[in-house]
Design a protein around this nucleic acid. Structure first.
Lengths: 261, 261
DNA sequence: CGCCGCCTTGAGGCGCCTCAACACTCGTGG
DNA sequence: CCACGAGTGTTGAGGCGCCTCAAGGCGGCG
């Protein structure tokens, strides 16, 4: 089981760099220091220092900002195989909080361990940074969503993105994918309120576009939903366009295959 | 004049890494290939390949997504000294467009030149990637803005951010800073409409918080405006928390000062 | 002069919010 | 075994923020 879950990690990072066998072993070792989180447990606290990078092994995290008036804006979800906390390398204090949505297992990588990684497997370290760039691309799409799309397409877009990301990580072989989000969570990340999210979801169900049950989501009519949302999933398919990550200090002498893409 | 403007570049990247003298010279040489842009001229076109990184020498760019219904969401502005196009290293096609807001001079760096930079001055190359991470942090703040703040604080937040970024780059020594944005631009990046932006700006002027004239912005009561906006500028002050950028292959043997911070 | 880009102002309307109340399913303890 | 409360989904009535769609003013420029 652990091997299976680790593969979600390798699958995600493997999209960003070519992982050598040695790199894979190193990664497996790097993610040995695992902690368990109960739902609602905070992992990162905004405006406090954070000196770890985390990799989600199983479960979902949410990253969010808490506002003075009690409002909350979710900035991203972290699905199995994804990395969080990279921006801590750039700022004294965390810019947002991160908390467990479900029961989670998370690998933590200390700053020192990350620095060792940079020395020993710079390409692997660079993959973490690239994943930070990918997060930026996702956030751009969210900004478009928040700024320019009405509630229905906004929610539709979110559902489509999450389904795609889950399948990219190898989760959800059946028609449906795991989906632990409450309507409150959807509201907090689409900038809407719970009652209104409820009505929109009902509408989608009524149109036969989706069905949600038992912590799982099924998208029944992907084309129509994507059309309504203006969903174009390019931004989820990172494919490095330069061999930059091989130049620093290749840990293998074989030329990388990426540049040929 | 060119030297002065180049210093905005060095000032921005210098926040992310320690630039050696050799690095500074290399950077100056790297930004030799300069192009001029008239207002409204497109630099990057979404969903088309983009194989250059650009550094703004003077003028403003806007990065935006165009929607089918004619709507537009501005995702960031590029001020003098800032870098754009980094995400092109990660995707086959550009995820957003970039166009000149004002008359601009822009240095273009080809992908090959960037790869050379990685080989010769990896720390400099890494600074470009870090600037991409900083962009992500800015975008997070915009997402909070779009999702959870009403029009008044939303616009206030934008104005405060831009003023701070401009001063960070060394622009605007007087009470006011250069400000070429039209109300249409403000609308396109706050997710509002021009008439409403107009009314909110009038309100701010009426309260004595700001004054806009002649392509320049003066913030007359920064505290009150920041309070209304919930503005906390931490996210604009990147300060690398690890010496990672020195590890790859230092071009100078002197230990970097950053790690001591 | 006449056009165009930009700011301004008004009247009317809709999307989404606010603030409830209620149903249902749990886990939990008495 | 049932009472209870917490968490979640659902529904309703009323209201406000911001939009839509105009029209008009004003300065700059060909």
């Amino acid at each position: 089981m652990a091997a299976n879950l680790d593969s979600a990690v390798a699958r995600n990072l493997g999209r960003l760099i070519v992982l050598s066998d040695a790199g894979q072993r190193y990664l497996a070792n790097l993610t040995k220091d695992v902690i368990e989180l109960k739902p609602r447990r905070k992992l990162i606290d905004e405006s406090r220092p954070c000196d770890h990078i985390f990799i989600v092994i199983s479960g979902w995290l949410s990253e969010y900002r808490q506002l003075r008036d009690g409002g909350r804006q979710i900035l991203n979800f972290r699905l199995p195989g994804e990395v969080t906390g990279v921006d801590c390398l750039l700022y004294k204090t965390a810019l947002h909080s991160a908390a467990a949505l479900t029961h989670c297992t998370v690998a933590q990588i200390s700053r020192e361990a990350f620095e060792d990684t940079q020395r020993d497997f710079p390409r692997l370290a660079s993959a973490f940074l690239l994943s930070g760039l990918r997060d930026g691309a996702i956030l751009q799409e969210w900004a478009v969503n928040l700024g320019r799309r009405p509630a229905f397409p906004r929610i539709a877009h979110l559902l489509l993105e999450l389904e795609r990301r889950l399948r990219n990580s190898g989760l959800g072989r059946e028609a449906s994918v795991p989906f632990p989000l409450k309507q409150q969570d959807i509201a907090d990340c689409t900038g809407l309120t719970t009652p209104y999210v409820n009505r929109v979801l009902q509408q989608m169900r009524g149109m036969g576009l989706i069905s949600i049950s038992e912590d799982s989501l099924e998208i029944r009519n992907s084309d129509e939903l994507a059309n309504a949302a203006g969903f174009r999933p390019d931004y989820l398919h990172a494919s490095p366009q330069t061999e930059w990550q091989t130049r620093f200090r290749p840990e293998t002498s074989a030329p990388a295959a990426i540049a040929a893409m």
